[in-house]
């Protein structure tokens, strides 16, 4: 009986999260079919459990197999843990990860080693921009030939669009791949305009004129949330506190951070915006 009620409780929790849209605060939308499946089965199993009780409970002779608790005290010990997730889910489901956790996870700024090879690439680009671009196109074509899958093609399309674009608009659905691309092809991207939305975050060792526009990227659930972002440099940085949602427009450049080259947005215009409906990005 208690089992039946607990199962129904879980089904209700799933239903509430689905209805309120808060489910995506925990797991990525592509998992939804599994959640529907789970909701349906748990509800079914729960109903059967409650109904089964009428038939004089069938399971006491499963000796050694499963332990059905015999007293109320035992029941509380056994089923108590099942109540905790229900409490959390019913009461705190609108919590969204903020910069406090980002500080522990560290933000992915990308970047590359400051090495001879990189300097050569920069020089190469400065001397002969067209030849360099040709080179990159060839590389992309090679990758294209290797991989014919749809997803890869989409990525290549994105790359070409970004190389041609004057203004790079970082959309939620291509957030991570756009930032990755800016990283990989920083030489081609320097000087382009960029538009990006995210929350403000600072590592402890940031200078006073630096902050990061960042988003949490989820692959399966919040447990694997990773912070992706891009550095912003402005004299006015102090105006925006951590966790403020901002839209930043500026120019892509490169700077050094922790002895690496990282992309940076310079001469930014920053506007404070409302937190988006989907604070996380779900790209993969």
């Amino acid at each position: 009986m208690i089992r039946g009620v607990l199962l129904c409780g879980y089904a209700l929790l799933f239903i509430k999260l689905l209805l309120s849209g808060n489910l995506t605060n925990y797991i990525v939308p592509k998992m939804l079919p599994f959640i529907y499946f789970a909701t349906f089965t748990i509800l079914l199993l729960g109903s059967i459990q409650i109904w089964r009780k009428e038939e004089d409970g069938c399971c006491h002779h499963c000796e050694g197999g499963h332990h059905v608790p015999k007293t109320v005290g035992q029941s509380i010990r056994v089923y108590g843990v099942f109540i905790v997730p229900l409490l959390i889910g019913f009461m705190f489901s609108n919590y969204v990860l903020d910069s406090a956790l980002a500080a522990k996870r560290g933000v992915q700024l990308g970047g590359r080693e400051i090495s001879e090879e990189n300097k050569q690439m920069v020089e190469q680009f400065l001397e002969d921009p067209e030849g360099y671009m040709q080179n990159i196109d060839n590389q992309i074509e090679n990758i294209m030939q290797d991989e014919g899958t749809e997803k890869v093609e989409k990525q290549e399309q994105l790359k070409e669009d970004l190389l041609e674009a004057q203004t790079v608009v970082v959309n939620d659905d291509k957030y991570v791949s756009t930032l990755n691309f800016i990283n990989e092809q920083i030489d081609a991207m320097i000087g382009k305009r960029i538009e990006i939305t995210g929350f403000v975050f600072r590592e402890r060792d940031f200078a006073a004129d630096e902050f990061v526009v960042a988003r949490y990227g989820l692959t399966c659930c919040v447990a694997d949330a990773t912070v992706y972002g891009i550095l912003v440099k402005t004299d006015q940085a102090a105006k925006w506190e951590n966790d403020t949602w901002v839209k930043v427009e500026g120019i892509i450049d490169e700077t050094t951070y922790r002895e690496r080259f990282v992309p940076v947005i310079i001469k930014p215009s920053v506007t404070v915006v409302n937190a988006p409906d989907q604070p996380y990005v779900y790209e993969y």
Partner: peptide, 12 residues
């Protein structure tokens, strides 16, 4: 939050 997300993901 992380606790519940691990559970929600694992239960199905």
């Amino acid at each position: 939050t992380i606790f519940l997300s691990i559970l929600l993901e694992a239960i199905p």
